[in-house]
Design a binder for these strands. Sequence first.
RNA 1: GCCGCAAUAGCUCAGUCGGUAGAGCAUUUCAUUCGUAACGAAAAGGUCGUGGGUUCGAGUCCCACUCGCGGCUCCA
Length: 646
Amino acid sequence: MMINITFPDKSVKQFEAGVTPLEIARSISPRLADDVLAASINGEEWDLSRPVNGDAELKLFKWDDPEGKHAFWHSSAHLLAEALQILYPGVKFGIGPAIESGFYYDIDPGQHQLTSDDFKKIEDKMLELARNKEDIVRADISKADALKLFGDRGEEYKCELISELEDGHITTYTQGCFTDLCRGPHIPNTAPIKAVKITSLAGAYWRGDEKRNQLVRVYGITFPKKKMLDDYLALLEEAKKRDHRKLGKEMELFAFSQNVGAGLPLWLPKGAALRDRLEQFLRKIQKRYGYLQVITPHIGNKALYVTSGHYAKYGKDSFQPIHTPQEGEEYLLKPMNCPHHCEIFRALPRSYRDLPLRLAEFGTVYRYEQSGELHGLTRVRGFTQDDAHIYCAPDQIKDEFLKVMDIIFYIFKALKFDNFEAQISLRDPEHKEKYIGSDENWHLAEQAIIEACAEKGLNARTELGEAAFYGPKLDFMVKDAIGRRWQLGTIQVDYNLPERFQLEYTGADNQKHRPVMIHRAPFGSMERFVAVLLEHTAGKFPLWLTPEQAVVLPISEKFNDYAHQVAAALEEQDFRVEVDDRNEKIGRKIRDNELKRIPYLVIVGEKEQEAGEVSVRKQGEGDQGSMKIANFARLLAEEVKKSINQ
RNA sequence: GCCGCAAUAGCUCAGUCGGUAGAGCAUUUCAUUCGUAACGAAAAGGUCGUGGGUUCGAGUCCCACUCGCGGCUCCA
């Protein structure tokens, strides 16, 4: 019997029923057969060696396709497991999936104690097994047989997984002496795995549940070519150089002190000035969008958070209340600004004419994050949100969303964050009871978010069940130097707080109405934003933001006076300029200041002094020739203007 | 909070078998006064994260704590 195989370009070819994707690839070209790693049949992931029995749409995936890498790394995870089984008899296996870069396997090492010293041994064993060119063979298995197979081997974790699977849909994959419960797909043979690196060990709770056993997670990555591994390792080294913790120290932006406490950043003068410029930048846009700045205290009466519901939910795991000499009086360091802003809403009678009311504050908040979670400036215990709360009528939500998105896009564009991801978090439609607020309002808000994204042409991922209990949200995520995702901007609808704080406004109908609240923070927090910005720019901030815009370098000490005159003239126009009047040769000064990522170096010697000029050198681009001081100032001004006004 | 790993000069790091701590860069001083990515010489700089323990003797071995790193869990 012949079947029709449709290719992605819609062309159709006939093959014998039972043909495998690999055979199809070979019929096209031997080269393709060498390169192909996985396939899909009618959209379903499919092994290259798995027969196709009916008409189908076929896609073939190579290394450059995520699906190809995925199969390659998934098979590598099995290879890792096989090596571990041989090297450490008695280890029990959890799960071993492919991830964004590489793969891991969770194992219960039993009496063995794995350390990084074992990596080489594991890598060598994996390579040895790969060189055996073992076929990776898929098999259907009944639930009973699967339970017996893995039960006999004492694989308690696998048995738990099997017991939750539906009979008739269980498959195993075997290569060499290792058989794993697995849905696939896999590459057909271990041979293409030519380079192996075990990257790290970590603890991981079984099934992500902190109440259950902690397994050892072995991370690794593999490649079809040795050179690709070398390139990958070089890339990781490069990424480490742009780690914000390293750059922040080097550039004297922020510091931590054991004496102050973990997760409590100290902003050094240059960092504080940088942060201030970011705040001014945002303040200016927000003013344009009708925001009103407010200021609220760093602590609030415990009752405020009991009212908001936060105390019940987070009180135990937060910084504990501050006690006063007055018996029974308790205050909390504020973990968020919203309750304070709600009280500002309540401070005056509100009319529908006041809405939307947009209250903004750079509000510093304190959250007792778990010690193991602290991370540079991205996860801290005291941080400042670029917070604002918009109080509006339900039918104003969409319009307000659009406006907030405008602000976020403006900021991301000015700072060249072009690789952000957006996620719409909606409620779980199966469990509407978990959420507060009326069905009608939820529907309205969710539609408002979805429509706003569509109108802005924003390609956002939609996640059901990820909404906060009080409302749906839209988050913006940016990756750091080594690919970890951090949430920056966020826009959240909230039905809960207006209810709890009994917020009301008088409508055109002279009746009382409850406003909807929108929380939003385009940066997320100043700390996290600066961290991610550092990693994005590798410390080379745009001219308007950078701590030192230019450094004047006198050729010798004879020209120090002129250098200071030049600096003074530029400072007069509000540029941030320093003079490197150290007793060093010009080559040395250039090198040091280039390494400090100074955007413009201004070299002055006899020629410049006589002509009233400066010799300009641009970071990374070298000598730009000499010009009058005023012309250089104009050049700076134009560059600043261009990046801020876009 | 959990698992694993680490902590030595301002920074990056070496320190063997337990025997009184070392390099490069940065800093200071001297010399030099220089034209587009590192001139030279010298000096100074450390209770080896903190507290206990083992030992004749601890940077080194053991325990606890603190801080940090990689994950996990969490993230109002």
